[in-house]
Amino acid sequence: MENLVVPIKNKSYEIYIGSGLLSTNKIFDDNVYSDQVLIVTNNIVAPLYLDTVKASLKNKDIASIILKDGENQKNLDSFSKIIDKLIKNKFNRESYIIALGGGVIGDIAGFAAASYQRGINYIQVPTTLLAQVDSSIGGKTAVNHIKAKNMIGAFYQPKCVISDTDTLNTLPKREFLSGLAEVIKHSLIMDPEFFDWLESNYEKVVNYDKKSLKFLIKKNCELKSSIVAEDEKEKGIRALLNLGHTFGHALETMTGYNKLLHGEAVAIGISIVSQISYELGLLGSDNLDRIIKIFNNVGLPTKIDKIDPEELIDCIYLDKKIDLSGLRLILLNKIGKASIIQAPEKIKLISLLKKILNG
């Protein structure tokens, strides 16, 4: 088992990475200090792991709620179901929520924990690659609005993250590959050597080589934790973690939260901003080619059909990354270095998107 610490002032917590952790009683004993525990999961994960986690929570007053799977379930209705369950079971301010599932479950359960009685404890138990390398770390919690993704939420850190790598064995291949988009993203914004490693080792990764996956998960946890520790609430450098997400979130919204997995949308989003970076003279063609190639090699999309550039622009102008000076974009200067810039004026951005999306 590997242990990492996310060193946030007065809120530090551990990430546990390893095999068989869901059935390791000691990890739960060491981190759950209340008798009242609500496990939030979904209808895909529950048959696989809910009983295992319950067995590891010895002598606890355990309740559970099983939501439907999918990004389109990340809404206020699901949030309300969790709050209803907490109230019905008379959970107090010392109680715990355990988020057992992927990024959707982690986001909803975390937001419920942030909101119930103005904040109760929660633990992230991510069961997807995307959640293990990205969404379970850093305390971003939210639900979607029908017109924009993650518009309702809070920064709220978990008490710990328990990443059992065995759960990846039951993850559908498409979901597994989706998680690699966030892995590639981390390398693009801050670690060119890791990008080189991905280029050389992607075949091992997509074929579930245990040694490669263990290295990959730990490396991504280290990279993300270093940024979160420096900028917990995204006032500066943490915004770089949004590479590809402005366009990716807009694409998820425009397709009804049911066509693209999050990682697939992020992969397309990164491809778009990489091409924008190239068109603006920030990114060299050799770097652009390598970025598109790595997504192709791991089986992630870089394009999407039937998207109107003007509608896409209208959607991204609902993004959270807009401030008083306008829309900010995360663009690439080279592999391993990203920057935050004010977006080109709207008419120029539409022209760029028409060239990229219709090219």
Rank of each mutant, 00 (worst) to 15 (best):
E2V: 09
N3T: 15
L4P: 04
T24H: 15
D30G: 04
V32W: 01
S34P: 13
D35G: 15
D35V: 11
L38Y: 12
V40W: 00
N42P: 08
V45C: 02
P47W: 07
I62M: 10
S64F: 14
I65R: 09
I65F: 10
I65M: 09
I66V: 15
K68M: 12
G70L: 10
E71P: 00
N75H: 11
N75W: 09
N75D: 14
L86E: 05
I87L: 14
I87Q: 10
N92Q: 12
Y96G: 01
G101V: 07
G103P: 06
G103C: 12
G103W: 02
I108E: 06
G110M: 10
F111P: 02
N121H: 15
Y122C: 07
I123Y: 02
Q124D: 08
P126R: 02
P126C: 06
T127L: 07
L129E: 02
Q132P: 03
S135W: 12
S135R: 05
I137E: 01
G138Q: 02
K140E: 00
T141Y: 00
N144A: 09
K149I: 09
M151H: 06
A154W: 11
Y156R: 08
T165W: 11
T167D: 03
T170I: 13
L171E: 02
R174M: 13
E175K: 11
F176N: 02
L177G: 07
S178G: 10
L180M: 05
I184F: 03
K185T: 01
S187A: 15
S187N: 03
I189C: 01
F195D: 00
S200N: 15
N201I: 12
V205P: 04
V206T: 14
Y208C: 05
K210V: 12
K210G: 08
F215P: 08
C221G: 07
E222L: 09
A229F: 10
E232Q: 12
K235H: 14
G236K: 13
R238N: 08
L240W: 01
G244E: 07
T246Q: 10
H249G: 07
H249K: 12
E252Q: 11
M254H: 00
G256L: 12
G256W: 05
N258V: 06
K259T: 08
L261C: 09
A265N: 06
V266Y: 05
S271M: 03
V273N: 00
I276G: 02
I276S: 03
L288Y: 03
L288P: 00
I292D: 01
K293V: 04
N297H: 14
P301T: 11
T302F: 02
T302Y: 05
T302H: 01
K306R: 14
D308A: 09
Y317W: 15
D319F: 06
I322W: 06
L329Q: 03
L331N: 02
L332G: 00
N333A: 10
N333K: 15
P344M: 11
P344A: 09
L357D: 04
N358D: 12
G359E: 13
G359C: 12
